[in-house]
Design a protein around this nucleic acid. Structure first.
Length: 432
RNA sequence: UCCGCGAUAGCUCAAUGGUGGAGCAUUCGGCUGUUAACCGAAGGGUUGCAGGUUCGAGUCCUGCUCGCGGAGCCA
């Protein structure tokens, strides 16, 4: 049944007879010539039936095909300028494997609600296939990047006893006799333990936020990669983030040209993502906002519109560092030169895509960390193990988190995060 | 949680308070190179729900439900 030949590598088989498995993406017909656009997951292929070249039986069988019928097609591979992709299949025979009556997603426009309701079928469309393939390539680039730099993949727990950063609203569940437990909002605290064991680690998995966010930049379930490195300070952390982003973007540009073209992505914007990236302090960013006429008070966090204003003058991602410690998490180390700011960095993507990375150097002093935990009214007993990391061979260390869907969204040029993940989870939707 | 917008055929949309239409999809017919093919025909409707105003409501008013966009929070 299986075929080792697919549409992506069909050019290598020019002049040969091959058998392909797939689905009918679309069909068209003339009087004596009929076309099947075949989809097999690796690409689209125009298959041609000439009356006379095939038996009457096969020619008439064409009428039984519908959009998304599954088929096995045999024919000769022909180089053909008129066909999209440069090759087409001159069909000699085909059989229908599964029917598909009244396929809901027609080759016309649909509203977003309808498409999301049919997400399980929507992912068969050209655009969605391109996005999901780029997502896969980004995931592979992320893993390659860290694996090649002596990082160890370190999987943190998903069920946790406490709110990691004490800020977000979390998904809650009953955990046997131990009371309430929560779905993780970040693997970072555990990654710190990993970094002090293995030197350099990264976590990569789903995280959950029960915030009632209702914007194109939020999902309740999303994937995050979080490297954490012992003996790294904030500058080392920013250097790594820069190199990391450049690597991801340039890898996708090199390997995913077909998919980027299918999305009509302006790749000249991505080509400019080369180091060094601009680095500005939070205080500088506030000045930029004020010069642009925003009445912004030092000490507040940036909103989405502010982020766009800060990043719009640059082609590369912008690293904004040293935020007021009040708006940042308890575990971030304060700047010894200015205790009002934390050694934190956010990376703002170009083209208004906003924050894709948030990171910091961590507080490595036992007493200061304990003080912060108390100041934030966090339950100290849950942080005993975390404080231990500062008790037994504490070192300066740093890390950051990259939101996978936001990165996919930026690189693909998407309007909304919901297209960047196979089955998006949002405040008013947990199906299909 | 707050602000704004919307719900009409399977889908995308139109319809001055006065007989609810079009394109796509579906079915049938035509065409030897189509590129969201094209041409012709047919079938397809409790206008989100409940109430109100009116001789008459898809259209105006009130309430509700659901959805979309944005804010806040954040990746």
């Amino acid at each position: 049944m299986k075929s080792d030949i697919n549409i992506k590598k069909l050019k290598e088989f020019a002049g040969q007879s091959v058998t392909l498995n797939g689905w009918v993406y679309n069909k068209r017909s003339g009087g004596k010539v009929r076309f099947i656009i075949l989809r097999d997951g690796t690409g689209l292929l125009q298959c041609v039936l000439f009356k006379g070249n095939v038996s009457e039986d096969v020619f008439e069988r064409f009428n039984l095909l519908n959009q998304e019928s599954s088929v096995q097609v045999t024919g000769n591979v022909k180089v053909e300028e008129r066909a999209p992709g440069g090759v087409e299949l001159d069909v000699t025979d085909f059989s229908i494997i599964g029917n598909s009556e009244n396929y809901p997603i027609t080759p016309k426009e649909h509203g977003i609600e309808f498409l999301i309701d049919h997400r399980h079928l929507w992912i068969r469309s050209k655009r969605q296939m391109a996005i999901l393939r780029i997502r896969h390539r980004i995931v592979k680039a992320i893993r390659d990047f860290f694996d090649e730099r002596d990082f160890t993949l370190f999987d943190p727990p998903i069920i946790t006893p406490n709110a990691c950063e004490g800020t977000s609203t979390l998904f809650e569940t009953e955990y046997f006799d131990l009371g309430k437990a929560y779905l993780t909002q970040s693997g970072q605290l555990y990654a710190e333990a990993g970094a002090l064991a293995l030197g350099k680690v990264y976590t990569f998995g789903p995280t959950f936020r029960a915030e009632k966010s209702k914007t194109r930049r939020h999902l309740t379930e999303f994937w995050m990669v979080e490297p954490e490195m012992a003996f790294y300070d904030l500058n080392d952390d920013m250097d790594l983030a820069e190199e990391f982003l450049e690597y991801i973007v340039q890898t996708v540009l090199k390997d995913m040209q077909t998919e980027l073209a299918a999305l009509e992505r302006d790749v000249t914007k991505l080509q400019k993502v080369r180091r060094p990236f601009p680095r500005i302090s939070y205080t500088d960013a506030v000045e930029i906002l004020r010069k642009k006429g925003v009445d912004f008070e030092w000490g507040n966090d940036f909103g989405a519109a502010d982020e766009t204003l800060i990043s719009e003058d640059y082609d590369q991602p912008v690293l904004v560092h040293r935020y007021p410690s009040e708006v940042k998490a308890f575990y971030m180390k304060r700047d010894p030169d200015n205790p009002k700011v934390a050694l934190a960095v956010d990376v703002l993507a170009p083209e208004g895509y906003g924050e894709i990375i948030g990171g910091s150097q961590r507080e490595d002093d036992y007493d200061l960390l304990l003080k912060r935990i108390k100041e934030h009214d966090l339950p100290v007993e849950f942080f005993d193990w975390y404080l231990d990391l500062r008790k037994y061979g504490s070192v300066p260390h740093a890390g950051f988190g990259l939101g996978l869907e936001r990165t996919v969204s930026w690189i693909c040029g998407l309007e909304h995060l919901r297209e960047a993940i196979p089955f998006p989870r949002m405040i008013y939707r947990n199906t299909p």
